[in-house]
């Protein structure tokens, strides 16, 4: 333990209201701490510069999954374990379930939360690519009220986001509009489990015969933020799936992402693999999902 533990404050407000009041009264002084799977790692390494935290881990207002005809709404503290176990999510949002299954081991899945994965702001986070593909919306609450924002655009740069110091994420809402879309998720990590992604790809497309009517694509670990690849999407929208379209899309993708060298991988690898995953996704659209043996296939299709 490389941090001076006695200097760190942690309080556990008994209600969301109490937590928000404290954040309102002393903005920037208090920061929320949920399952601890990211912050406690920094703490161990002596790299947690902030000193005062609010434990929101036991706040029931931030828990639970609600299903309406239009949406599935997940409490901010929904854990990876809970995501995987939810029948509607399994059926309609398999990419999110797969992301949850491939994040850490069971212990991490029990403590890691969706909102935590978002606000940690890591470009290598596993669930944000799926959330982007599903057009997720996020409810931000403060003592003064709440607002819904689209998840796309939430991250404004490396570790920066539209969240204000007095706000926390309350819920994440997934519109149930992707029925019939083909889905693809593949995390390329440093090993098969308990890995941080080197490239992570989530894609979903609405097909009409051989034509891509609509498409969503998001990649992790290839830019300062988890990136919705709008330009590549645009290049593919209304296109027939063909070798020519693949090649053009791969070129656009190369322009759209900005991978770097770090201790886990290289920019060249990330670029090449991102392109290869795009191709694999598109081939799957072309093949009508025929390549059953492939592990990149989402577990289910809606």
């Amino acid at each position: 333990m490389r941090s001076y533990v006695p200097a760190y404050e942690l309080r556990a407000p008994q209600s969301l209201e109490a937590a928000l009041e404290l954040l309102e009264r002393e903005p920037d002084v208090w920061r929320p701490l949920a399952g601890g799977t990211d912050l406690m790692v920094l703490f161990e390494a002596g790299k947690l510069t902030h000193r005062k935290f609010l434990s929101i881990w036991k706040l029931s207002e931030l828990k639970g999954v609600e299903v309406t005809p239009e949406h599935v709404t997940l409490g901010a503290l929904t854990t990876y374990t809970q995501v995987q176990a939810h029948a509607v999510l399994q059926r309609e949002f398999p990419l999110l379930c797969q992301a949850a299954r491939e994040t850490g081991g069971i212990a991490t899945q029990n403590r890691g939360t969706l909102a935590g994965n978002i606000v940690n702001g890591s470009p290598a986070a596993d669930s944000p690519p799926a959330l982007l593909v599903y057009d997720a919306q996020i409810e931000l609450v403060s003592a003064r009220g709440s607002r819904w924002v689209p998840y796309q655009g939430f991250h404004t740069g490396y570790k920066t986001m539209v969240l204000r110091p007095e706000e926390i994420i309350r819920r994440i809402r997934l519109p149930r509009t992707k029925q019939g879309w083909r889905q693809y998720y593949r995390k390329v990590g440093t090993r098969k489990a308990q890995a941080i992604s080197k490239v992570c790809f989530a894609g979903s497309a609405q097909m009409q015969h051989n034509t891509i009517r609509d498409i969503r694509m998001a990649l992790g670990s290839v830019a300062p933020i988890v990136l919705r690849c709008a330009r590549t999407e645009a290049a593919l929208r209304s296109q027939k799936v063909s070798a020519g379209a693949f090649a053009a899309a791969k070129e656009v993708l190369a322009q759209e992402i900005t991978p770097i060298d770090d201790m886990r991988s290289t920019a060249a690898y990330r670029l090449r693999v991102a392109q290869n995953l795009l191709e694999e996704f598109l081939l799957q659209l072309q093949n009508n999902g025929g390549d059953e043996s492939h592990r990149g296939l989402a577990a289910a299709e809606s």
């Binding site: 799977t37 406690m40 434990s55 991490t108």
Partner: peptide, 12 residues
């Protein structure tokens, strides 16, 4: 539930 006790602040 299984958890890594190195990542859990005792207050929680």
């Amino acid at each position: 539930e299984i958890a890594n006790s190195c990542l859990v602040p005792v207050l929680q």
